[in-house]
Amino acid sequence: MADPECSICGRRACYLRRYSGQRFCAEHFVEYFEAKVKRTMLRYRMLARGERIGVAVSGGKDSLTLLSILSTLAPKLKLELQAILIDEGIAGYRAETVERARRFCSELGVPLLELSFREHTGLSLDEMVELSRRNACTFCGVFRRRLLNAAARKLGCDKLATGHNLDDEVQAILMNYLRGDVERLLRLGVSTVSKKLVPRIKPLMEMPEKEVALYALLSGIPASFEECPYAGDSFRTDVRDCINRLEEKNPGIKFSILRGYQKLLPFLESHEAGALRRCATCGEPSSGERCKACLLIEELSRSASR
């Protein structure tokens, strides 16, 4: 068998995009990737000239790739970037990724705001997990979203950009389907849920996780490839394995899932559950009378006093 060659220049290929049959050498892969992310941002009108963009960074490949691409676009679009880092408090994992995020932000000249679970809820994620039987990712997701939104709002950001890739999106879509959680399913796909929430953009949402990792490696982005110690035992992991098995046999199925969901969105939007109120306790946006973050904090303090 001949060595796999780039479909554009004939050099040795480093990536086969199975769902289109194209092969790319390193140089053409990087070119394709950047062009596609830009196309995605245009297509969904994610950015407008002169906006202040909050960028959630963790030090992983997704967020640092996002920051890198946005920073190349910033001068032309007159964007003002502001990186936001949430330290959940995960021993043996977060310290290293935080360090990487700091270094990359200063290299790019992007200001970085750091917040921690500990200073905002009184507990680190590790401590929450010790107090509760709940999955770490439940606390992590709820408090991270809360802190990011509050920070972006305080900093006066017009948008909040996160590094969610195609795999993250498709996993979330299927998880919500499987749980029958129509409300979360809806909120996943709309950028502006309410005036109380800073509109979210996900410029990498059409890029498969493997492509993001490859881009980060090929462009020398100093990202961490470590896995969170809590990543193994979640529902998400089962869903991810299942989707990747399907994708292996049916290349392109991740895109079909995303497209199908996008077709459903207009119908979901007529669902009344999309409306947000203010939490009776903290005043933050909430779908119920009290927000998920407040409910979790109360639950934790009950466990702590027991």
Partner: peptide, 19 residues
Amino acid sequence: NREEVIVKLGGTIVTEEEP
């Protein structure tokens, strides 16, 4: 699963078709 790994051969990233 090939979706979950990037493969290097002799220090160079290669496709899964690489013999």
